[in-house]
């Protein structure tokens, strides 16, 4: 059968180990220099931004009533940083509180739906109906119901985050390793133990895919809610509408830029957290 018939089982296992050692993958702790340090990686991006900025300036200088120049935007930001910072914080608060509520609610409902199909069948149609209703249409109604305070903004932000979280978490909780589940079941593990040790950690790639969609949406949600209640409360979205109404273009575009910065910060933070939490997952899950 084999030419190494004199070797006993122990020796052959040792040989297997040697072979194993050669094929194993990098340790998760192994660190290389970050990719973005290499010019090949950052240079194309930098060039694109430089070209875009140049074109922007050309348009802004020839059409001063369409867009402001970049230096006018910069001057506006530098002129009243405290005002921008205060508005930034208001919107950030809406995003954080609204998104956190939507994320938790979406995940919890997913857990319940994953355990009880009956509840999914009962509730899912309602969820879909709410989600296909344009959020821009819901926002004014919420302002009427809850006034111009923070509450309607939290609700709108939570609503836009809720659906991608629910759908992705549910997919993750369902996509359990069935062979591992068989092992848990023969051990007579409880539903809670299966959730704690298998389903919950196993669904994280999907949860992060959901978050990747949900966080930028949260900024959209907060801004839209502020548009509707503009003039009453602070916030970058309000700032956009009020300044645009006064044709104060540098303020409008400075606010838009800050909304954009907020989105980028949130997505970058998510990428960092994802790397720490999901080092064991070999591929990014495609979000639904």
């Amino acid at each position: 059968m084999s030419e190494t018939s004199t070797i006993d089982a122990t020796a052959s296992m040792a040989a297997a180990e040697l072979a194993d050692r050669r094929t194993r993958r990098d340790a998760p702790s192994a660190r290389r220099a970050p990719a973005w340090l290499r010019p090949r990686v950052w240079l194309p991006t930098a060039i694109t931004f430089a070209v875009a900025a140049f074109l922007w300036q050309v348009v802004a200088i020839t059409n001063p009533y369409v867009i402001p120049t970049l230096d006018a935007i910069g001057a506006s930001l530098a002129g009243d940083p405290a005002m921008y910072w205060a508005n930034f914080l208001v919107t950030l608060q809406e995003v954080v509180i609204g998104a956190a509520s939507g994320i938790v609610a979406g995940f919890l409902l997913a857990v319940v739906m994953a355990e009880f199909r009956l509840i999914e069948r009962a509730v899912m149609p309602l969820v879909v109906v709410v989600m296909v209703t344009p959020i821009v249409a819901i926002a004014p109604a919420l302002v009427v119901a809850f006034g111009f305070g923070m509450m309607p903004k939290y609700i709108v932000t939570a609503l836009v985050v809720f659906f991608p979280m629910l759908v992705n978490s549910l997919a993750g909780l369902r996509d359990v390793d069935v062979k591992a589940l068989d092992v848990f079941r023969t051990l007579h593990a409880s539903k809670w133990e299966i959730f704690r040790d298998l389903r919950f950690p196993g669904c994280m790639p999907y949860v992060f895919a959901g978050l990747r969609i949900a966080l930028p949406l949260a900024v959209v949600g907060a801004a839209v809610a502020e548009f509707v209640a503009a003039g009453q409360q602070a916030g970058l979205g309000s700032l956009v509408t009020t300044s645009a109404a006064q044709a104060n273009l540098p303020v409008t575009w400075a606010s838009i830029a800050l909304l954009c910065v907020m989105g980028v910060l949130l997505v970058s933070l998510l990428a960092v957290v994802r790397k720490r939490v999901l080092w064991w997952s070999d591929g990014e899950v495609v979000a639904r």
Partner: peptide
């Protein structure tokens, strides 16, 4: 027997928890 953890299962794929 399962409640008493007297059954050991080795599935076709190792089904180890990667985390």
């Amino acid at each position: 027997a399962a409640a008493d953890k007297r059954i050991g299962l080795v599935p076709q794929s190792p089904a180890l928890l990667p985390w």
